[in-house]
Structure formats: structure tokens, C-alpha cells
């Protein structure tokens, strides 16, 4: 009982927990701040692991299963760390019409990963987005945090090979 009621401690000494704490403080440590807090955790750590979910749930007095339910309901949150690079292929209607499926095919052929997966070496994660809102530039891809428009399978391959040569 007392363990539950006393103030939860961050899982590690990591400074980034201060950011998370700040968000929770701003939201008055209320359960309604769960999603905002998870956004902060995801931004700070790149993903939500069990200890993070537990800490946030305890701090905001949200049942564990509800925190887990929320974290898995929204596609923006991930429970696993992403690769060093991320490649987000937009699958919005405009991009679909203009050849996004072919981009995915190319990715799958070259890297042998499906959307949502990371290459075994942890270098590249392939993600899909429902719509980046860059429909005028269809098909669009986000390389790390940079949006690229009118992407062809060839230009996609060029970009991927850059990642593979430089850093892996």
C-alpha cells in the first residue's frame, strides 16, 4: 500500500526524466495528462518501455492496464526502440495513387523488412504514415526528420545506400 501511495521514483538517473517530470507537473499530475506525458517520454527516449509506462502510470495515478491500453491504441507511440535511421513512407491516398506501394516494395526487396520493422543491424526502421499532409508532393517519404517529395524507387535506393555506407 505505502509503496503505491508514496511518490514514485524515476526508473533511472537519466536526466531526461526531468523533462517527463516537468510535463507531469505542468499538467498537475492528473490522469488526463497521460497522453501528453507519453508524448514527452517518446520524444525524450524514442520509445515507451515498461519501466517508463509504470513510472508514468504511478505518477499520474492511472491504472497500469489503462496506460498500456492508451500506449498501444495510438500508432504514434512505440514500445520498441527504433533503428538509427527511420524511413517513413507516406501511404496517404495521393501517395498511394502516385506510387507509394512501389516504394514499399523496393524497401522490402532491398532491406527485407516490412513496415514497422527494423533491420537486424538496427540501422534502418521502416515505418508508414497515414498521411503526412504533403499530398502535393506525392509520393512523399520522411528520411529521419526530413520530408522528401516526388520520391521514386531509384531515389529511395540512393538515399538508403547513403545510410548504409556512411554509418553502418
Amino acid at each position: 500500500m505505502s509503496a503505491y501511495v508514496s511518490k514514485p521514483q524515476p526508473p533511472t538517473q537519466d536526466k531526461r526524466w526531468k523533462l517527463v517530470d516537468a510535463t507531469m507537473r505542468r499538467l498537475g499530475h492528473q490522469s488526463r495528462g497521460l497522453i501528453e506525458t507519453l508524448h514527452t517520454v517518446q520524444e525524450a527516449f524514442g520509445y515507451l518501455d515498461e519501466s517508463a509506462l509504470r513510472y508514468v502510470a504511478m505518477s499520474l495515478r492511472v491504472p497500469l492496464s489503462r496506460a498500456y491500453g492508451v500506449a498501444t491504441f495510438y500508432h504514434f507511440f512505440t514500445l520498441k526502440p527504433a533503428g538509427k535511421h527511420t524511413c517513413v513512407v507516406c501511404l496517404g491516398t495521393a501517395c498511394y495513387i502516385k506510387g507509394a506501394p512501389q516504394l514499399l516494395d523496393a524497401m522490402q526487396k532491398d532491406l527485407d523488412i516490412k513496415p514497422g520493422e527494423t533491420t537486424p543491424d538496427g540501422n534502418v526502421s521502416l515505418l508508414t504514415a497515414r498521411c503526412l499532409g504533403s499530398c502535393g508532393l506525392a509520393p512523399a517519404v520522411v528520411y529521419d526528420n526530413e520530408v522528401a517529395g516526388k520520391v521514386s524507387p531509384q531515389s529511395l535506393r540512393e538515399h538508403l545506400s547513403k545510410w548504409n555506407h556512411h554509418e553502418s
Binding site: I35, E36, H39, V62, R66, Y74
Partner: peptide
């Protein structure tokens, strides 16, 4: 309040649930 990737949250009661920090 930041949406987190759920189209259904365009529906007003789902959106409200999400603003309340719940599953949308």
C-alpha cells in the same frame, strides 16, 4: 493536445476521450 495517430479521434466523442487522456 497532441493527437497520437488515430483517425477515429476525428469523431467528436473519441476526440474528447483522447483529450481526457484515454483511448480514443
Amino acid at each position: 493536445r497532441l493527437g497520437a495517430g488515430a483517425f477515429v479521434c476525428g469523431e467528436e466523442t473519441a476526440l474528447i476521450a483522447s483529450v481526457e487522456g484515454k483511448r480514443g
